[in-house]
Nucleic acid binder design. Structure first.
Length: 940
RNA sequence: GGGCGGGUAGCUCAGCGGUAGAGCGCUGGCCUUACAAGCCGGAUGUCGCAGGUUCAAACCCUGUCCCGCCCA
């Protein structure tokens, strides 16, 4: 390096670490270098590794859940890519039927129009236009996070090729008799005006309602029978009242008829042991087969009439007699009032009930009889169950297997048609006489009187084909051959049924092979107090605000628009106590820090409570990496990178051997964690290694050696090890913090074999370190000695600049040799100019204090000279504290050693260990007592 | 009603059979030429409660109480 260049590099890194400035620099570089690209060339022999990205909704903007998913998947894909796999992360966007239609309808509403005003064709065109304008938001945001999918392969579920796949799948299932049309009781959302599948209905538990009682008069008698309901308006569709066959109260009424008070109808009293619980309420149950799932089944058992009283928009139809035309809510009070007027009301009481709500609109769902398309799932579910049980697909964490089993074992036929305009059209044509033809395109022999089915398919139908439709299916493309089945499907557990199970079923059905080898499930990001993030709670955090920084005022303006600022702020701060302590906003934490934070939560946590303080902590970690690299680079000036071979350099010095041995262990832990979807373990171990092993000990120990102007063999060895460990550490951390590691890696000496970007790897492997258990154990001894001396210093509040006399005593020859070798480092770290190593029988110097360090080589005494620095009183305090600790440990150990059962039954090693511990504690106690006796020497 | 998690330091969480851990917070001392976004120390827990198994239990078993989620 010439001087000018050297100067440039120096000033460049001398600036403080600023994530915004660093992070905006690298994304374009990665794309230019083709880092993210996977190859479907059949000649490419690399092992494929594939994650199909859960396609975010086209309506979406990045929320914390996306950030978590993006982080976890990007870590995995970057790791596998660095390991040399042909890594494909296949991105995409979901057309999100209902959600998108709602968004565009709202837009129209602002113009005072409905979709019916402009017609279907214009509406769909409008959706496409909207998609073109704002559909890409989320992919831009994913780039900010550093996501590395193969963008060239981005798919949209409404792309022409995916439409072909959807039609093909539908036709094949229809031809196999698995898709059929039927009239059934289904879930109807009057607000979206479409049918829903069972999964799209969310049950709101604990809703406050009312249990209203009223009487039906028995025909031709003065008697009455009282029934209870939470939905009084449905009585307009009642076609029976059921009692339990054994209920003595009603035996005399079996088979009698009741008079409906509002419509011209007489309804029977039936007996049904399944529907009726005689202990609940009056023991008599009104039966509305057309508007209740239990009643529907009861109706089938008894051949009851099914009377639909609702229009599709939730108003009452002509069957409702005098109530026709009313909205269902209005009708409820009107029916109650009318019953009261007729003297049939029999009181009401508050009742807690479960309300079925539409996942998208939030409206109350009505069971309604309707003709829809269904898909029979039974056989496919059995195959999907089998695949998991046989281990062809593994679910991680395993606890989800039960949930998966339960769902598939009890699966119901899937209502796949939706009365929407935005979505995949159903490839069926209706003839003038009710005939139906299903085909890939409209058959030529059908005249204009044959019209295509107006419905579209459930969004999840196309999603279920995702792992193969995105690779070209039904065509046998090279990509399909190479990348199916995928390796890992990573997603939130909330869509295990919606998406994952259905992909399993369709994958097995169409491809005759599981769609992926593992299902990796992560939890839900919630606020710091554990509450779900939601707009009304005002606890939503936009990941971009964490990355770029913002004021809390700005934030709550977005989360709670229109709400009084103080109120919104209060809500926010209550949800994030640790943020409340940060002043009036988030600083720019950067994508690296956010990613690292999200990666440190075990994915198996069902709830991932986002603690802003934690992000701050990892922001500090990034800073630490930055500064450690600055230091290392200054010490590596003029270092010739040709020395680096790509694996661990030869090392003789104890500290070099230790850091390389520790590095090896860390690499092993990281790789294991990443392999088992325990990214948190990899992250925590990397953090621990870099900060505590590398920065706190290694960089400190090597400072004097690297500053030694006279050079020498050890200095050159150390420079090579330092360069190697640093470069390896950056590669180790890269999948977690891609930006800062790339930035620094580009400046760090590295082997000639490395490619243009750190993202190309290789990921560290064990040969980057060395195996040396002794070096690790000896380091522990060294650290214990240094810490013991430092503790004495600190407890006596000795000026950090003051030099102390230090004598370290052991009678073990190997321990002695070990300490001799490390003496200069001990001197440096303890701040003692001339420490000595002696036998335990060496004469005591007056005015010293002692601490005993247990070690694998027996107890080591650490004597620190305190004369003139410390008072007797202080020393006695210290001794008492120490003594208390030892006595506590000793009591526990002695209890064990005096237990016959322990001595006889515990494994030999455990007994030996415990005994050794006891001896060391006794020794330490002896030293302390001695120190107490001698405390006088210190003076007052 | 059935199922699945969780209850460990003030907070967010690891640990899941052999002497209780991390980060943040708290606290004492230090502006030691990489980093005060830092360094060297320290304090803090009847590991929800009650039984049981075991030489040994935060960890396994049983019961129980809270909290959350899913299914019906």
């Amino acid at each position: 390096m010439n001087d000018a260049k050297k100067e440039a590099a120096k000033t460049d890194l001398d600036r403080p670490y600023d994530p915004r400035e660093v992070e905006e620099r690298w994304y374009a570089f990665w794309e230019k270098e083709g880092v993210f690209e996977a190859s479907d060339d059949p000649a490419d022999t690399r092992e494929p590794y594939v994650i199909p990205m859960p396609p975010p909704n086209v309506t979406g903007s990045l929320h914390m859940g996306h950030a978590l998913m993006t982080t976890l998947e990007d870590v995995l894909i970057r790791w596998e890519r660095m390991r040399g796999k042909n890594a494909l992360w296949l991105p995409g966007i979901d057309h999100a039927g209902i959600a998108t239609q709602i968004v565009v309808e709202r837009q129209l509403a602002r113009e005072g129009k409905t979709r019916h005003d402009i017609g279907r064709e214009a509406f769909v065109e409008r959706v496409w236009k909207w998609k073109a304008e704002s559909g890409g938001t989320i992919t831009k945001q994913q780039r900010v996070l550093g996501a590395s999918p193969d963008w060239r392969r981005t798919k949209f579920t409404m792309d022409p090729d995916l439409c072909v796949a959807v039609t093909e799948a539908f036709v094949r299932l229809y031809e196999a008799g698995l898709i059929y049309r039927a009239t059934r009781l289904i879930n109807w959302c009057p607000e979206c005006q479409t049918a829903l599948s069972d999964l799209e209905v969310e049950n709101e538990e604990g809703a406050n309602g009312e249990l209203f009682q009223f009487a039906y008069k028995v025909d031709g008698s003065d008697e009455e029978i009282v029934v209870a309901t939470t939905r009084p308006e449905t009585m307009l569709g009642d076609t029976a009242v059921a009692v339990h066959p054994d209920d003595e109260r009603y035996k005399h009424l079996h088979g009698k008829m009741l008079v409906h008070p509002f419509v011209d109808r007489k309804i029977p009293i039936i007996t049904d042991a399944i529907l009726v619980d005689p202990k609940f309420g009056t023991g008599a149950v009104k039966v509305t087969p057309a508007h209740d799932f239990n009643d529907f089944a009861t109706g089938k058992r008894h051949g009851l009439q099914e009377i639909n009283i609702l229009n599709l928009d939730g108003t009452l139809n002509e069957q409702a007699g005098p109530f026709a035309g009313m909205d269902r809510k209005k009708a409820r009070s009107a029916v109650k009032k009318a019953l009261e007027e007729k003297g049939l009301a029999r009181g009401s009481k508050p009742h807690v009930l479960t309300l079925p709500r539409c996942q998208r609109s939030g409206g109350v769902v009505e069971p309604m009889i309707s003709t829809q398309w269904f898909c029979n799932m039974k056989e496919m579910a059995a195959e999907a169950l089998k695949a998991v049980h046989e281990g062809r697909t593994k679910i991680v964490p395993e606890e989800w297997v039960k949930t998966y089993d339960h769902f598939l074992t009890n699966i119901q036929d899937w209502c796949i048609s939706r009365q929407l305009w935005w979505g995949h059209p159903i490839p069926a044509w209706h003839g003038p006489n009710g005939e139906i033809r299903v085909a890939r395109t409209k058959p030529a022999d059908l005249g204009p009187e044959w019209v295509q089915d107006p419905d579209v398919l459930d969004t999840w139908f196309s999603s279920a084909l995702w792992p193969f439709s995105t690779l070209g299916w039904p065509n046998e493309t090279p990509a399909l051959k190479k990348f199916y089945p995928a390796s890992d499907l990573e997603t939130g557990y909330d869509i295990l049924f919606f998406w994952v199970a259905r992909m399993m079923m369709f994958g097995l059905y169409f491809m005759k092979e599981v769609p992926f080898r593992r299902i990796l499930l992560h939890g839900m990001v919630v606020d710091e107090t554990g509450d779900k993030m939601s707009k009304v709670k005002g606890n939503v955090i936009d990941p971009l605000d964490l990355i770029y920084g913002t004021t809390f005022t700005e934030m709550v303006k977005k989360t709670l628009p229109g709400a009084p600022e103080q109120e919104a702020l209060a809500k926010f701060k209550k949800a994030y106590p640790s943020a409340a302590a940060m002043g009036n906003g988030f600083p720019a934490f950067g994508a690296d820090a956010l990613r690292f934070t999200l990666a440190t939560y075990p994915p198996s946590n069902k709830r991932i409570a986002l603690a802003p303080k934690r992000i701050e902590g990892y922001r500090h970690f990034a800073n630490k990496i930055w500064n450690a690299t600055r230091l290392a680079l200054s010490q590596l000036e003029g270092f010739d990178a040709k020395v680096l071979t790509g694996s661990a350099p030869e090392a003789k010095a104890w500290f070099n051997r230790w850091i390389l041995a520790q590095l090896r262990k860390t690499i092993a832990v990281a790789n294991e964690g990443l392999a088992e979807f325990r990214i948190d373990e990899a992250a925590n171990e990397s953090y621990r290694f870099f900060w505590y092993d590398f920065c706190d000990w290694y960089l400190e120990i090597t400072k004097p050696i690297l500053r030694d102007e006279s050079g020498g063999e050890q200095k050159e060895e150390t420079r090579a090890v330092l360069a190697h460990v640093l470069e390896t550490s950056l590669r180790l951390i890269h999948p977690l913090m891609p930006f800062i590691t790339e930035e620094l890696w580009q400046r760090v000496p590295r082997p000639a074999s490395r490619r243009s970007s750190i993202a190309f790897g290789p990921y560290p492997q064990e040969s980057d370190g060395i195996e040396d258990e002794a070096a690790l154990a000896d380091m522990e001894t060294f650290k214990a000695v240094v810490s013991a001396a430092r503790t004495i210093r600190s407890e006596h509040e000795i000026d950090p600049k003051a030099d102390v006399a230090l004598s370290i005593r052991t009678d073990d020859a190997s321990a002695r040799a070990l300490l001799e070798e490390r003496l200069s480092s001990i001197a440096l770290l303890v701040k003692s100019k001339s420490p000595v190593i002696e036998g335990t029988s060496a004469p005591r110097t007056a005015g010293t204090t002692t601490s005993v360090v247990p070690s694998a080589r027996g107890p080591i005494e650490v004597h620190v000279g305190l004369k003139g620095l410390v008072t007797k009183a202080k020393e006695l305090q210290r001794i008492d504290r120490e003594m208390k600790r030892i006595d506590k440990d000793l009591a526990a150990v002695e209890k064990k050693m005096s237990s016959k059962g322990f001595l006889e039954r515990a494994p030999k090693e455990v007994v030996e260990e415990t005994n050794a511990m006891k001896q060391q504690l006794l020794e330490a106690k002896k030293r302390l007592e001695e120190a107490r006796r001698l405390a006088d020497e210190l003076g007052d």
